[in-house]
């Protein structure tokens, strides 16, 4: 069961997020200092760096607040919060692979492959023969919809060139 982080995991995550925000704010501020001021156009008050600089300072301050607050609280004892990481990470891996391959192989083939891989990992193929045949039939319909009907609608009705 996937739920929000809690206990020690959330404590560590907050500490990491606070540190990342401090670094992000600092990096953004340094990067905005390197932007042109366009002083030759009359005023520096419209310089492109003003807004990112302003946001960078706020992000830095919010990151520092989060870090300080987390450090001030005692770290909770580790608890088993029952996160089901395996299905989430498997799903994430499948989606990432599919997205990285977009544009490199035929879209319809790619999305059909995604469906097959998804079915292999997430559909339970155990049980009575009739049940398995029913599930296979349902998955075939899903593949037909996802790999044929939806792309064809976009291609021929909305005149979109598939990626």
């Amino acid at each position: 069961m996937v739920s929000e982080l809690s206990g020690r995991r959330l404590h560590v995550a907050d500490l990491a997020t606070g540190s990342v925000l401090i670094l992000l704010g600092a990096a953004m501020f340094v990067a905005s200092l390197a932007m042109p001021t366009y002083a030759d156009r009359g005023t520096v008050l419209t310089a492109p760096a003003i807004f990112p600089g302003f946001i960078a300072i706020i992000l830095f301050a919010l990151g520092a607040l989060l870090t300080a607050r987390t450090l001030r609280q005692p770290a909770p004892h580790p608890t088993g919060d029952g996160l089901a990481w395996r299905p989430v990470l498997t799903g994430l891996a499948l989606m990432t692979i599919a997205i990285v391959l977009v544009g490199h192989i035929d879209f319809q083939l790619l999305i059909a492959g995604f469906c097959v891989a998804f079915a292999a990992f997430f559909v339970s193929w155990r049980g009575a023969r009739a049940e398995i045949i029913r599930k296979a039939g349902a998955m075939a319909i899903v593949i037909l919809v996802v790999a044929v009907l939806i792309p064809m609608t976009f291609q021929h009705v909305f005149l979109i060139r598939l990626p």
Binding site: G91, M95, A98, I99, V102, I111, F114, C115, F118, F122, V142, I143, V145, V146, A147, I150, P151, F154, I160, L162, P163
Partner: peptide
């Protein structure tokens, strides 16, 4: 349902 939604999320 997930593959259908994922396909729509891409397209």
């Amino acid at each position: 349902l997930t593959p259908v939604i994922f396909c729509l999320c891409l397209l």
